[in-house]
Design a protein around this nucleic acid. Structure first.
Lengths: 245, 245
DNA sequence: TCAAAAGTGTTTTGTGTACACCCATGC
DNA sequence: GCATGGGTGTACACAAAACACTTTTGA
């Protein structure tokens, strides 16, 4: 056996010998969630590809060769919504061979949570619009599959991480919060049990104000404690405990 | 406003107008776990790049333009281990700009579980070897980060899905199973509580045999029920319930 | 007979869930 | 005064955790 170090090659040689493989497009697709009208909605755009005429697609773009993939998703979000301080999280890559009619394009899916009241989009035409997640059917590309994956991930995350507050205004009532959880999880929750669980998590602080202009008894307003507001918890580190002793 | 359909373009035109973006390499990296010597180990290979001389890297390869990304990970596993009926699951993409010295290469990480006793690798040189996860330090590329992510995902999954059995021989004792869980989670478990929880999950069947050649009282041997053995549960669908009423 | 692990149950504690009544406000 | 949601507590079931002794085998 010869010395392994003799087999070493430089990165440059490595690349040149595989040039034909650098022929795949990489895109990022953002599943941008908002909460509006008691529904979880996703921002979709009318596809501009003839092949998908009449169908909606996610907001996405090709990743530039000099651009980090996380930055690409931020860029798309900034370009489309004008917001840049948002919760964004990668879900996974989708890479079926024929998922894109332009050629081989692998896409990396991100989901994002934004407060619609914090930013009014220019929805001045019917190209770009919010659609209730529950009503989304056929989409361009494999985007229905991507939305489903992102929704599932979101459902998993909200149980342990204080991220849903990115979908709400700064001040909100417990009823609003509960309705949001119900919209995301697709289930009805018991009010007393819900409040108990939220209280235990200790995420909220009473802002000392009440709801106004509601046609019933006003509820207290809360906001997320500052310590949780600073940075979204990108790296979930839930210690495995269900089986620990 | 003009009719939106006038703006439609074909996929072909779309691709031609973005040709410079089809200049990114896409690779797949496999974190191949096995369980050996009461330790969780990963299959690593000595890097053949000068830039990473002396460091180990994951098994990976560029995705071919006509190859599905899931298939690419299967191909790598097959080429390296000879096994093709294995548990494989995508974790996420890693796409920092400078993560690869050859140029812009985005990688998609998979983890895999194999039974080392079911297949003896040709480890006849020191290029390819199993390393205990707990002892892995510096690696080529961002592969340490990738391993950490995959381990975390594995830890999450084993609590609800019967996947660890891919790391064990067909027949095993409850002690072996418990030691495996302990190796993956990095914690000690209580024997009685562990057995209770495994019994509740109802994954196992008694094969009616006992351990042999052990220097102590032999334990019963179990195997995973056939219904769980057929197909690994690739699409985890855990109904969110912690907050439901 | 010793070492080493197999096998087994009970108690306590915490969490999830189901459920009902009075209160405050706007109209 | 009526409709609407706000706000609160208790009882039961189940799951998690702590914990110790006897049994079986090989050496």
């Amino acid at each position: 056996m010869t010395n392994p170090s003799q087999h070493l090659k430089t990165a440059e040689i490595e690349k040149i010998s595989h040039l034909e493989y650098f022929n795949i497009g990489v895109s990022v697709d953002c599943v941008i969630f908002c909460y509006d009208d008691k529904q979880l909605k996703v921002l979709l755009i009318r596809s501009d590809l003839e092949e998908f005429s009449g169908l909606n697609s996610l907001l996405g773009d090709l990743v530039r060769p000099d651009e980090d993939i996380d930055n690409a998703s931020y860029r798309i979000l900034k370009e489309r919504t004008g917001m840049d301080d948002v919760y964004l999280e990668q879900v996974q890559a989708f890479g079926a061979i024929d998922r894109h009619p332009s050629g081989r394009v692998i896409t990396i899916a991100y989901y994002s949570l934004i407060d619609i009241k914090n930013h009014r989009l220019q929805l001045d035409n019917n190209e770009l619009n919010w659609y209730p997640v529950s009503q989304i059917r056929k989409m361009a590309f494999d985007h229905k599959l991507i939305i489903d994956s992102c929704l599932k991930r979101l459902q998993d995350q909200i149980l342990d991480n204080p991220i849903v507050f990115n979908l709400l205004p700064h001040k909100f009532s417990l009823r609003e919060l509960q309705e949001l959880y119900e919209a995301i999880l697709g289930v009805k929750l018991d009010r007393r049990n819900f409040r108990k669980k939220i209280a235990i998590k200790d995420w909220l602080e009473d802002v000392g104000e009440m709801e106004e202009d509601v046609p019933h008894r006003p509820g207290k307003l809360y906001s997320l404690k500052a310590e949780y507001r600073k940075k979204p918890n990108r790296h979930k580190i839930p210690a495995p405990k269900a089986l620990t002793s």
